[in-house]
Design a protein around this nucleic acid. Structure first.
Length: 485
RNA sequence: GGCGCGUUCGUCUAGUGGCUUAGGACGCCGCCCUCUCAAGGCGGAGAUCGCGGGUUCGAAUCCCGCACGCGCUACCA
């Protein structure tokens, strides 16, 4: 629209963990800001004291940081528009809302929760089209208000919505959205505990922090007219709006616990790479218009635009995430996988064993195309970390034949003669003996695989052998011969 | 109930009036490769574009109605 530097914000409330939907909202804000050379602000919406969770802010920071979403301003970083914790901005909200009261754009309300409850029940009984506050306290005289205020009767401040008007605003994703003010409640702006509600706080802060574009979840679309009224009452310019489609459960309801993991930290703990999660979540509701599905963060930044965000909600589908995790993992340099593998080992039953970098790198080379998660290295090929103690029953039945022990014994003798054998040396030795005895290779290969790994699947046998080396190979053949003869 | 938003293969999506017998990806199935499992290559099943009306020579694409789903409807965000 103009040449002003875009300023956007991610404004979570500290109720525990970062929701996967929150991650996507944060990501879209981040991508939008980076793409336009703008600023991203982190603001903590801690205006609900009942829902505040200790340590939630730290957790939010930690998770966002892990995901690679960085902020230009925020509680920990500082900035010129602070404080970035709404609980530290109470005075600001109070002063501004009082200005609105002075102009009759908002008013004191002394109604008790009981009366409000009763009002709602009555309205329901009468089957009124919509339940709204009845503006009861709007008719209070100045002296009545002062008297109640002086005797410390609890109060809230409500937005004075004028009836019979149209409110409309433009949404980048949904275009023009229109509401009738008759359907808009006199929303509480300031609660009786002196804290603002979301509606007041977000408008005030977005204005004061010079936010140019509000990018948030679709659940906010219905309350946006209240915000628009507020901007008008204050006489402020409105930011641009973009309401993102919701992330959905398999049954299409709003993504929630009960139907799977919703916390980003759950996925982190399960071994998902941040690259995969970011890639996946970015594509849930956005695409560039071509067939590309594998993205790194910098490409997302380059190509992202709100105009290409979809309108409809998207089901969070684990299978595609798993595939992306596989794709990102296999593209990582071995040295990086090595680091991750080491931490995985340290958490495993093999933690007391010692493996050289060289050895682990060989395992990575052999297994890379067979794993989706780093932990798969341990679960799919435990034999690289410890000699097999038992042999898979099914496979044994099929592959361990009458003559297997004898053939394996002959093969072992061949191997013993080898000096520092490579993969090719092992292969040649096996082929030679098979040729000499005129027996097909499979008769050697399968029993050998069982002996050395205990299972019937995995990398090529010669690859396994070259990872294990001559000594270990022979020792494993020996114990297999002992146990299986 | 009211208001709002949405609706293309099971899922994520391409598609903005003719290039579409609706394309890709994940998943699924089959074949090839092969010492196994993967990977890779090739192929297959899978969408009457929610439904019904219009507009137009022509509609997934434009308009209207309906249905369904979801969101909001708090002194929660």
């Amino acid at each position: 629209m103009n040449s002003i530097t875009p300023r956007v914000r991610f404004a979570p409330s500290p109720t525990g963990y970062l929701h996967i939907g929150g991650l996507r909202t944060a990501l879209y804000n981040f991508l939008f800001a980076k793409n336009k050379n703008g600023k991203l602000i982190l603001r903590i919406e801690d205006t609900d004291r009942k829902r505040f969770v200790e340590g939630a802010v730290e957790n939010l920071n930690d998770t966002l940081n892990w995901a690679g979403i960085t902020f230009d301003e925020g509680p920990d970083i500082g900035g010129e528009s602070g404080p970035y914790l709404q609980s530290e901005r109470l005075q600001i909200y109070k002063e501004l809302v009082e200005k609105l009261v002075a102009e009759q754009k908002a008013y004191y309300c002394f109604c008790t929760p009981e009366r409000l409850e009763q009002l709602r029940e009555e309205q329901q009984k009468l089957k009124l089209p919509q339940a709204k506050y009845d503006k009861h306290c709007l008719s209070l005289s100045k002296s009545e208000i002062d008297e109640k205020l002086n005797s410390n009767i609890p109060f809230v401040i409500r937005l004075n919505v004028k009836p019979d008007q149209k409110v409309f605003f433009n949404d980048v994703i949904r275009e023009t959205v229109e509401f009738d003010t008759n359907n808009i409640d006199d929303q509480v702006l300031l609660k009786s505990d002196g804290f603002p509600t979301y509606h007041l706080a977000n408008v005030v802060d977005d204005h004061l922090m010079e936010i140019t574009d509000v990018i948030r979840g679709e659940e906010w679309l219905s309350s946006t007219p209240k915000h628009v009224i507020l901007y008008d009452y204050f006489g402020w310019d409105k930011p641009g709006f973009a309401h993102l489609p919701l992330l959905l459960n398999p049954d299409k309801s709003k993504l929630s616990k009960r139907q799977g993991d919703v916390a980003v930290e759950d996925y982190r703990e399960k071994g998902y790479l941040k690259e995969a999660l970011i890639n996946f979540v970015a594509l849930l509701g956005w695409n560039f218009g071509d067939d590309k599905e594998f993205y790194e963060m910098d490409e997302l930044i380059e190509k992202f635009s709100l105009e290409r965000v979809h309108k409809a909600g998207a089901v969070f589908n684990l299978e595609k995430l798993n595939w992306l995790n596989y794709e990102h993992l296999r593209k990582k340099p071995d040295a990086e996988v090595l680091k991750m593998l080491r931490t995985e080992i340290s958490k495993s039953e093999f933690s007391s064993n010692i493996y050289s970098d060289e050895y682990l790198i060989k395992i990575i080379g052999a297994m890379k195309e067979r794993v989706s998660f780093v932990k798969d290295y341990l679960t799919k090929s435990p034999y690289f970390f410890q000699a097999p103690e038992s042999y898979e029953e099914q496979n044994l039945k099929k592959r361990w034949l009458e003559d297997s022990a004898e053939l394996l014994n002959k093969l072992k003798e061949r191997f013993e003669a080898l000096v520092n054998p490579s993969k090719e040396d092992f292969e040649k030795a096996l082929e030679e003996i098979a040729g000499q005895l005129n027996i097909i290779k499979g008769k050697f290969v399968h029993p050998l695989r069982i002996a050395v790994s205990g299972v019937g699947e995995g990398p090529g046998v010669y690859d396994i052998l070259s990872v294990l080396g001559k000594e270990e190979t022979i020792s494993r053949i020996n114990s297999a011969l002992k146990k299986l003869s």
